[in-house]
Design a protein around this nucleic acid. Structure first.
Lengths: 236, 236
DNA sequence: ACGACTTTCGACACGGTGTCGAAACTCTCT
DNA sequence: AGAGAGTTTCGACACCGTGTCGAAAGTCGT
């Protein structure tokens, strides 16, 4: 949103005026993305039509193709930052320091909570983006980066003697799919919810998932309570 | 397949003959299901058209609607027995007896291995079936039955003193989504495969997932090796 | 031979995707 | 002031996939 819109009348827009006289409140691209985000959350990507996105954006169906090549291009825009959030948290966690076990706990708990709160079906996104590797290359390389970071933390914890012997690569895969699995029990909106998660909030679920992971991994499980306490201080 | 096909010429089929002279080798319903299974595994349900199912079944596109109301009806037929397999194993495991921890290990390991080998994307199936609750009610009630059975095993193990204190309901959810997560690392066919799982076979992954689960849950992790050994004897 | 039944097909309506060319404006230059 | 370029939007359309409908083309029984 530029300054124009909040004070004087918005400056004239070039281009053909819209039918029905409705003007965009801002950049049509941003509005399309916002509208599509809500629809993807409610109905999934497959259940959302370009016509509906256009209609709710105040455009005709064909106009959307002026800004986006296709529906997957809109999706790409929306999910471009998904992994960035958890990778930024990883950097923060590593910058804060602490044992590998503490940092791992913080990361897992953060990721699980984010997945609980994530409005989109991550599995649908995985599958759609897997079908178009080139266009979602960034998404996958970031996801791989996260996997490797978790595996590295696990390996570090084992080397420190705080974590018991384990295969770091498989462990990372399991931990991250634990987090993703939470989407099937609790999500802000969406058609599908498996019974069971609705009695808990995102924090409870995330803390539980992180606890269970550390119970599996810690050589001395007596240390879990202290790790949890410290993590909750650092990431309320 | 009836006896007719293997000896004498197949008995005349009523109804309009197929274009191109090709005859069905058996029940057209069964052939449609078989063809659709392969296509759903390769391309996902969403990526499979009724035209392609018809074509590979030797029919015209509209003929498929004579046997199935729509694509989801075919899917329903295919997945009708998915949960039955793991529920049957649960019955077998309970009939065999043994501690709750042993039975839990066997169940988790079996489910994870089944998920590795399952050609379809379980998450796509979840989402498609969630959108049509009435038609997939059986699927969901069986899934819920499995959840409750796992929760009950966990509760029993805690009561026996073999498993450490935990929330049985959340634990069941985590364990089963561990199993499902394996689909993203290894599956017989399918477009999507997250890097990491390809170096392991289904047995290795399943045993690892079961091990990690028990490491989290067992009060005395020293018992894990004996449980694993016993489980591998019972379920090679 | 005829009618009932079954299985299959062709034609079609409808909805969704995506393209194309033009409408309807703004802006700049002469 | 007018012309041309550019931008944004729209209408029309081709194509594809779903799903329906009525008829074709058989078999079977009376």
């Amino acid at each position: 949103m530029t300054g124009d819109e909040t004070t004087a009348a918005p400056r004239a827009r070039t281009g053909r005026p819209r039918a029905g006289g409705r003007r965009s409140d801002g950049d049509p691209r941003d509005e399309i993305v916002a509208v599509a985000s809500r629809l993807f959350a409610e109905r999934g990507v497959g259940g959302t039509t370009m016509s509906e996105i256009a209609r709710r954006s105040g455009l005709r169906q064909s106009s959307v193709y002026y800004y986006f090549r296709d529906k997957e291009a809109i999706l790409g825009e929306i999910v471009a930052s998904v992994n960035r959030v958890i990778l930024d948290h990883l950097e923060r966690v590593n910058a804060d320091g602490g044992t590998a076990a503490l940092r791992l706990y913080r990361l897992i708990r953060f990721d699980a909570r984010q997945m609980c709160r994530f409005p989109f079906d991550i599995n649908e996104i995985y599958r759609l983006s897997a079908l178009q590797d080139e266009r979602f290359a960034g998404f996958w390389s970031e996801r791989q980066e996260l996997n490797e970071a978790v595996a590295a933390l696990v390996a570090e914890g084992v080397a420190e003697g705080q974590l018991a012997e384990t295969d770091p690569r498989l462990t990372a895969l399991v931990l991250l799919s634990n987090d993703e699995g939470t989407q099937n029990w609790q999500r802000p909106v969406g058609a599908f919810r498996q019974e069971g998660g609705e009695h808990y909030d995102a924090d409870q679920i995330a803390t539980f998932v992180a606890d269970l992971a550390m119970r599996a991994l810690l050589r001395d499980r007596g240390r879990l309570a202290a790790i949890r306490r410290r993590a909750l201080e650092l990431d309320p």
